[in-house]
Nucleic acid binder design. Structure first.
Lengths: 330, 330
DNA sequence: TTGTAGGCGTTATCAG
DNA sequence: CTGATAACGCCTACAA
């Protein structure tokens, strides 16, 4: 089979018996076209299998219709990013945008590259650090940008992130309501992390914690958590368990498998996926959802707003985590 | 701060005191440039912060320098794709290529879209089905393409995939060598799946299985596997356990946590990540690696080969799984 | 409601 | 070794 050249709007115009510009106007909708003409054009497009050339369109209009997505270079076991990538990509398509992946290790230079070459009209930055060099590059370029994750300083970019303080409050309230006298937190909870998720979470926890609830932070290693709890002084009520780490949640569960069903414990899940539906000992535990798909959708919508309104103010949107419903999203 | 227009090669030329075409030649290396001129051009580029305009370049050269990556729309818990996305992206950059994400739900129409618009020069298809409509679209377009996963029929596209038959053989050999008289397989092992990974794996298993090794397939649900084993007739030797499902491996482990340390069992891991390094009951079990990063790198290299050599033959590369070393890649 | 024409920033073919 | 110049395919004033 011969690889024939792709048809151009010129070809479409010829076949439809109109001028090339009319084809262009029909496609962009930048001016009214008579019903009859439009039909002939559509027909010609179908017949030729015409697709507007993206390079030419980008060159002329100075908009590529592509948004860059800077993904974290993964740590072991980080399943985290993929749901974002897919949801962002799908939502972007609804606005006729495509998504180009750039890895975080390209850093600020990567930002300058994709904006400098005109490859991308806008950027979504994932897993932003407290003080992220990429934000400076974005601001300098005046590029529409949404960051997933909240930097410490007020950024030039819009922010879409989970409300981690609220997450802390929700965990505390549930634990207390279920008669727990101790809340054992595990997972990556270093205050001095490059990101501020955990410190925001812990702030929420401590602000909401009533006098009757003792809050304890376990050391990070899954293998050690169970032993750590056994060394604690005995408590009168139940113990609630929560871990701020989706990637490792199952490992922790694995390390504490006997505690999952012990009535003296309240295990609170942290995942968008209902592990119970997959059949495990984790069945029927209460679960808070990080709403990765919702965050993704909001991020794209915010980016579209920034793209459409020339000088829109940047915004910060903190999404509340939700308790999983019985008919959860699975 | 004013958002000044991006500098063009014209600006660079002026500043360097050469013609615009010379700048282009210096950049593409399409013809020799004197050392002196080249230096002045480089300097001008630095000073202006010049990046060649991607739209113009694509329009003129008919090559976008972008490869499309069609990612699976995820099932619950599928952490699988992300390591591929990152590794492919990183390897692509080494060849000055960028990666555009397209979701599998766009199907063959998505293929036609990205190739028709000239957005992508080539494609990598992930999780290809036994008989995948996207391959027809690719063949029709004569597009350089690598599929991760092996279709049943001989494809037009190159194939890079794991050698699942060999995987089956390796599991069997290890089980037998360690004195097992039974091999219990679990995870998604439906013969009639849309993909053929499991049937290739099972073929390898059955071809290699010696008379002294009984092969048993457990039903899919993690919660049921342990109970299933207990219902089996007792066996004289040890039982080897292997599950062809990275996403669910930990769930199965969770469901069979007591068997992990039982000397009557040989649990064989299936993951690129050393769970032992994270501190769990899974410590110190033998482990086979799906080599996601290696597969990704090979896929990109093969695509580059197809892009460089005008009419290169497509190839099939089946990568052998490997036993994790003590100093594993983690 | 439609047509004409100029130019977006490159690459690559001519000359020199 | 280097300069001028003609496309590449589309968008969008300007004209009719």
């Amino acid at each position: 089979m011969v690889k024939s050249k792709a048809p151009t709007s010129q070809d479409v115009a010829r076949l439809a018996g109109v001028s090339q510009s009319t084809v262009s106007y029909a496609l962009t909708g930048a001016r009214p076209i008579s019903e009859e003409t439009r039909r002939r054009i559509e027909a010609a497009i179908q017949e030729l299998g015409y697709h507007p050339n993206s390079g030419a369109r980008t060159l002329r209009s100075r908009r590529s219709g592509v948004i860059g997505l800077m993904v974290p270079t993964p740590r072991p076991l980080s399943s985290g990013p993929m749901p974002f990538v897919v949801a962002i990509s799908q939502e972007a398509r609804r606005f006729d945008l495509d998504v180009l992946v750039v890895t975080a290790d390209e850093g600020a230079a990567g930002v300058r590259r994709v904006v400098g070459t005109g490859l991308c009209d806008a950027l979504i930055l994932m897993e932003i650090d407290r003080d992220d060099e990429r934000l400076a590059a974005v601001a300098e370029a005046g590029l529409p940008c949404v960051s997933l994750g909240k930097p410490d300083a007020v950024p030039g970019a819009s922010v879409v992130d989970l409300d981690f303080e609220l997450l802390g409050r929700l965990v505390v309230e549930r634990a207390f309501a279920e008669g727990c006298s101790r809340l054992l937190l595990f997972g990556r909870l270093e205050e001095k992390s490059r990101r501020n998720d955990s410190s925001r979470f812990l702030r929420g926890v401590h602000e909401a914690a009533p006098a009757g609830l003792e809050v304890v932070l376990a050391p990070g290693d899954p293998a050690q958590v169970a032993a750590f709890e056994d060394d604690l002084s005995p408590t009168s009520g139940r113990t609630a368990l929560f871990g701020l780490s989706q990637e490792l949640e199952m490992l922790f569960a694995l390390a504490m498998t006997d505690r999952l069903t012990d009535p003296g414990h309240l295990f609170i899940g942290w995942s968008d996926v209902d592990l119970a539906a997959l059949g495990t000992a984790l069945a029927a535990i209460p679960r808070l959802t990080p709403r990765q798909a919702d965050v993704s959708v909001l991020a794209v919508r915010e980016l579209v707003r920034l793209l459409r309104e020339p000088d829109a103010e940047s915004r910060t949107t903190l999404l509340p985590p939700q308790w999983a419903e019985a008919d959860g999203e699975g």
